[in-house]
Design a protein around this nucleic acid. Structure first.
Lengths: 211, 211, 211, 211
DNA sequence: CATGAATGAGTGTTCATTCAT
DNA sequence: GATGAATGAACACTCATTCAT
């Protein structure tokens, strides 16, 4: 089956990554065997190794894809207007999809990636790069707000960015352990807390995150 | 009639767990072999299996120990007085030790446990139990504050508790990926944000967390 | 009705064998993959299988080609005149080329063939046939010398032929392991030894083997 | 089965090497799987890897053992008296065992080692070291004979040593391809040829090599 | 109680070969 | 005729666990 279109090649690649995500979200990286992925993808071992040089490469590719997607969210979110609006948009973009099963599955794999970063320098690099972009946007946002006097200038903008990211990461973790968690109520508190920083009036309890 | 004192048995157990933590923090659960632990502990395979029935049991024991320690922190923290003081005390107790290498190593293993919980029901149970205690304390704290009118009553106490926990979890993650993160500055922002909820005056930039 | 000329077909065949020799001399038969040969030849897997039914067929073809070449050397050498002259001519024809890198590379593959003959009946057959021809010529040479009284008649002509062949094989081996070996000095000794058999005067130290 | 005697350990090692030689002599290194060796040895994969780190290590160990044995032959042969006697003794020690099936089997593996040396630097080193010792002894022997005037002084002693070794190597090869070869007759010719060099009277046809 | 040799199912990966395009 | 994506049976090696000593 030679001389296959690039479209076909891309589709195969996505097919393998999708299968891997299925497996990884169920069993983790290390309890998932290549055979599992092979089976899930409906391919042969050889076929998979034509697209990825190793299991670790698949993990890395998954992490990369995820961060690319988030980078896109951030880029499009950036022109939402004033800081508060941007923050709201980001909250909607990041928390919103968590109500969907597919996204939750991907986030479960994301948590595995977080852990994997602790022992794989390659994965660590991907994770750090993946966090750098949101952090720098949020930092800029905070600086902007401080310039307007909406946030106390003693607060470190980078630390503030990290706090916001932590609010997301912690939620992802807790939701992975207990899917019944309510996104809305969590976001309401998170926004109330951040609102205090950004000086926006408390909109607690009135949160609207997704359609 | 045991030939060996309970003290000796406990010491052996601790010795094995310490060795396992060393290995796990470096290589993760699945890349760490029992041989690694055997070597690190200076024991024999047989000896280890006298204390733990399986590798998974060691993981579970580590997770349990960790949560027991946290439960102790919470119990002693509880009588610090009014909500704000308790919160301050908890922040000091949880964030403070993160400046020490040993604690950071243990937290790295903790992150592995978080990921492991996604595939091992036994570990999941431990993790959930481990989070339940702090959550219920924090929930009570928030309710207390709401009763006093210090926190908007529309906020869900449980969600508020989760937010606080998330602030810790996110920090642990980010610090694991980048040990150069500044605890103080992070805590300053986190406390400013929570301060808005608990109604305490903003103490941004003046944080004192540990001695 | 072939779309492609026989010349083209032969060229392809030679191209593949040349590529295979390159690879085999570097990595041996079993560490060389068909992909290696494909790459080296600048062809596709399918193309190669159009000319050779299997990897073993390539090995066999290489062995065959080699022995065909040697048979040619022997045939042309046969009419050099008296036994001593023929022997000299053969020595020159077989040892001479060993100073050239290309021939040494081919001989390295030849050594692999020698080993392969021990497990592949097909290759064994080729190797034995390859040695039969020189052996029978040399045997005849010895018999001739014995008839003339130049060699002790108690010596077995076949054994004598084998000795001569061994002198070549051993040199090929030793040179493959250590390319710095001096051909001239080796030949001088070998000829001195054989000279004693063939009754020729010792020409030790004055060897001229190739141009 | 812990705390096992060194004797037991050595026996296991030998057991594995013996099994490997059986397999290698039948199928060569690369067609022999570790499973084959496992089966032949009546052990488990894990057991084998306790004694040898890799398949290549087994090959290396076999080559080493062989050369150690040859070194011993040479050492004990050295005090046979005058050069001719030593040479006779070496011929007996090296050619004699070739009539036995076990030795022939080992020599078949030895041929595989010769080929393997062309691609494995580790094996090459062993092979070269294995040849150095006999070569240096034979060189000394030739020099001694030259000093006594028994060998033409123009002959290079090292080349002469290589010639003698080649006579052995070539025989081993030819016997591996055709076990019916007659050792006696071959040796008679070889000794006649070398006799011319060492100046000993021709003992062609009267050879006695083994008991 | 402790040892550590042994087990054996399972791992990630390879590679000679095929055949739809 | 040529391509190269796909196959799938191996392969070398690992490692949690056991149990004779």
């Amino acid at each position: 089956m030679p001389r296959v279109s690039q479209t076909h090649l891309d589709a195969r690649r996505r097919q393998i990554l999708a299968a891997a995500i299925q497996c990884f979200s169920r069993e983790g990286f290390h309890r998932t065997t290549m055979q599992d992925i092979v089976r899930q993808a409906g391919l042969s071992p050889g076929a998979i190794y034509r697209y990825f040089a190793s299991k670790e490469d698949i993990i890395e590719a998954i992490a990369n894809e995820r961060h690319a997607r988030e980078a896109a969210l951030i880029t499009t979110g950036q022109d939402a207007g004033e800081p508060g609006a941007i923050l709201g948009r980001l909250a909607r973009d990041f928390f919103g999809p968590l109500t969907r099963a597919g996204e939750r599955q991907r986030r479960r794999v994301g948590i595995q990636v977080w852990a994997e970063a602790l022992r794989s320098p390659r994965v660590l690099k991907v994770v750090r790069r993946g966090i750098d972009r949101p952090r720098s946007l949020l930092r800029a946002l905070v600086r902007d707000a401080q310039r307007r006097g909406a946030i106390a200038s003693e607060l470190d903008p980078d630390a503030a960015a990290r706090v916001m990211i932590a609010l997301f990461q912690g939620f992802v973790l807790q939701q992975a352990w207990d899917p019944k968690i309510d996104v809305e109520r969590y976001l309401a508190v998170a926004e109330a807390a951040l609102g205090a920083l950004t000086g926006r009036p408390n909109r607690a309890g009135k949160g609207r995150t997704h359609g």
